[in-house]
Design a protein around this nucleic acid. Sequence first.
DNA 1: CCAGAAAAGTGCGAAATCGTACACTTTGCG
DNA 2: CGCAAAGTGTACGATTTCGCACTTTTCTGG
Lengths: 222, 222
Amino acid sequence: MAKSQQNLILSRLSKSDRALLEPHLEPADLPLRKVLEKRGKPIKAVYFPDSGFASVVANGDKHPIEVGLIGREGMTGLAVLLGHDRNCNEVYMQAAGQGHCIRADDLREAINKSVSLHRSMLRYAHAFLEQATRTAVANGRSKIEERLARWLLMADDRLDGPELPLTHEFLAMMLGVRRPGVTIAVQELECEGMIARRRGRIVITDREALENMSNGTYVSAD
Amino acid sequence: MAKSQQNLILSRLSKSDRALLEPHLEPADLPLRKVLEKRGKPIKAVYFPDSGFASVVANGDKHPIEVGLIGREGMTGLAVLLGHDRNCNEVYMQAAGQGHCIRADDLREAINKSVSLHRSMLRYAHAFLEQATRTAVANGRSKIEERLARWLLMADDRLDGPELPLTHEFLAMMLGVRRPGVTIAVQELECEGMIARRRGRIVITDREALENMSNGTYVSAD
DNA sequence: CCAGAAAAGTGCGAAATCGTACACTTTGCG
DNA sequence: CGCAAAGTGTACGATTTCGCACTTTTCTGG
């Protein structure tokens, strides 16, 4: 899969829609852990990652668990598209990258001016909704290994290099399971030759096998 | 909570938006098991329940599991609002009722004509997205009793009488767990005085306790 | 090169859930 | 009324995951 340099929503806009946003878009550095949306707080700005990805995480304090993952195929701030000013999950960067951002009010104004712009973004909202429902299914019916396989594939889709910079601790948080559980699952995937690993890194070596392992819960980004 | 007689999306529309839909809306009987959307097939019609509710169910054949629930607060066919013509889940009635329906093409035409109509419906899309993410959280982190409590509350919100017509078999399917697991969970909720039951029926007797039991995963419909 | 910290591996009993099988009870219908 | 079907209760071993604690390995900065 060839990976483009730019955010896919932005790069697919018509010239005129692009021109509508351009004046308000600002380059944004997206370092690890940067918070893009705060749980329950009004959304001030909306981000379009070019690289790296963010996690949408529910249950903030106590038992965090990821419900979605946003990379260059998407954008944050879906609530804005859908007529709300906040949502009830945290969104923060999990793999550092670059992107652009726009003030929420400027985005509102732009989508009021252009139906086709709004429409382009709503198509992504649909993709995200499907991602969330697949997460619900995976959480309900899959074993840790299967969910891990799915997650690794989704992360890989959104990163440029072959290496995923992920600790077990971190994966455990995303999947909402114990850290030793992840260690075991990683070992199993490695034994089966699907991944290679070093401290804090995982490399996918057999994508197809991982997709099988994920048991149909994985669908490629975009 | 007073329960209105009519679909909440429709009843909250402005006069002019309402007038736009009215010519195309047809009363629809919504018997148990009526299929409102088929997995992977184009959406022909969109439904607005006045009573009863539908389930959005993933994993059709093999291991079905519910990802969302649609009653008088909502509508089917969100994909249409978001610029797609199908989605990958089944939607079918789980508690019989009445409602209205509109052909998907007529709905597309109407939302093209009225931004405010589209907007009203998108607000529900946001609510549904949040419901789906909460389902993902509950599936990932909650025990059967907690998920059962959540589900009963959601169903109760969408039904008029106090009695929920639900078999354990059916609940097991919705939650994606074993049937005996539901029997146990139901017994526990009954022991704690939160529900009463008869063969095939459950009545909520202590809503507040159930909400506590659901551990924050339940949020009232609308 | 070494010390400290971060990450990963391991072990253990407890809890939750699974899959399956079977018996009992209620209900609707001929 | 009696029977079949549907719904429910129960049991049992197997599997998965949990929660916690501890050790070992690897990396990093001084």
